[in-house]
Structure formats: structure tokens, C-alpha cells
């Protein structure tokens, strides 16, 4: 029975959860400086270990962020094919990214302090 349903690797399971939680923030951060199109974001994220995504995952995420009012889009005719869709942060997106980054900082600090026993 155990061979048929092995328990998931705890680390792998944790990284999946982490990736899910951080992906929104990673995208918002990637858009913090300038607007980017979809594949550009994929390329940016591939350099961050554990945050590699495909377009199949990214596009729904971007669509959700747009529905939440955090990003906006525009189409620009492309020399190389169909028009490109560029994503950029709205002011709400900037505010949300700032809050999320601050909160992440707090979380990381807290986790580290627990490891070092700082809180005691």
C-alpha cells in the first residue's frame, strides 16, 4: 500500500507551495521597473531558482492580476509577427507590490530569527 501511494517529498511539496505563494510577487517585481511582454517575463523568472514557469501558467496569473487591477496591458504591433501584449503595473499594483515585499521581508526575517533564536 505504501508503495502504491508514497508520501510526497517534504521539500518538493514545500517548494511547490512556496512557488505558488511567491509567483504573484515575482511577477509584480519583474514589472516594477518597466513594462514587459509575456515571454520576457518567462525569461526573467527562469533565472530565479524555483520560480520557473511556462506561459501556460503565466498567462492565467497575469489575467488574474489584471482582473484584480494590479496590472494593465496594451497591444503593440510587432515587426516579427502578431501584436505583442505588454504588461505594466498600475498604481494599485505598485502599492500591492510594496506591501507584499515588506511583508515577505518580515516573514524572512522572522524565520531567520527563529533559526538563530534571536527572539528569545
Amino acid at each position: 500500500m505504501s508503495a502504491a501511494n508514497p508520501l510526497p517529498d517534504p521539500f518538493e511539496s514545500w517548494t511547490v507551495q512556496m512557488r505558488k505563494g511567491l509567483l504573484d510577487l515575482a511577477v509584480l517585481n519583474a514589472l516594477m521597473e518597466s513594462e514587459r511582454y509575456g515571454y520576457e517575463l518567462v525569461k526573467n523568472l527562469v533565472h530565479v531558482p524555483g520560480l520557473t514557469v511556462t506561459e501556460g501558467t503565466l498567462y492565467p496569473l497575469l489575467s488574474r492580476l489584471r482582473l484584480q487591477g494590479l496590472v494593465k496591458t496594451r497591444l503593440e504591433p510587432s515587426e516579427s509577427g502578431p501584436a505583442r501584449k505588454y504588461y505594466s503595473l498600475t498604481s494599485e499594483g505598485h502599492r500591492a507590490a510594496k506591501l507584499m515585499n515588506e511583508h515577505l521581508e518580515e516573514l524572512v526575517k522572522g524565520c531567520r530569527s527563529l533559526r538563530n533564536g534571536d527572539q528569545q
Partner: peptide, 22 residues
């Protein structure tokens, strides 16, 4: 997948189509 993630299905389909064409 868009519906499962609370996204706009048509928008995502449009993005995917554009990506395929690109």
C-alpha cells in the same frame, strides 16, 4: 486553466493564441 485560477478565460485563450502565432 484560467477558470481554475480565477482569470479571464477568453483573455488567456487570446494570449495563448497570440503566443502560438508568434
Amino acid at each position: 486553466r484560467a477558470r481554475a485560477n480565477g482569470a479571464d478565460p477568453d483573455e488567456v485563450a487570446d494570449d495563448v493564441r497570440r503566443h502560438v502565432e508568434a
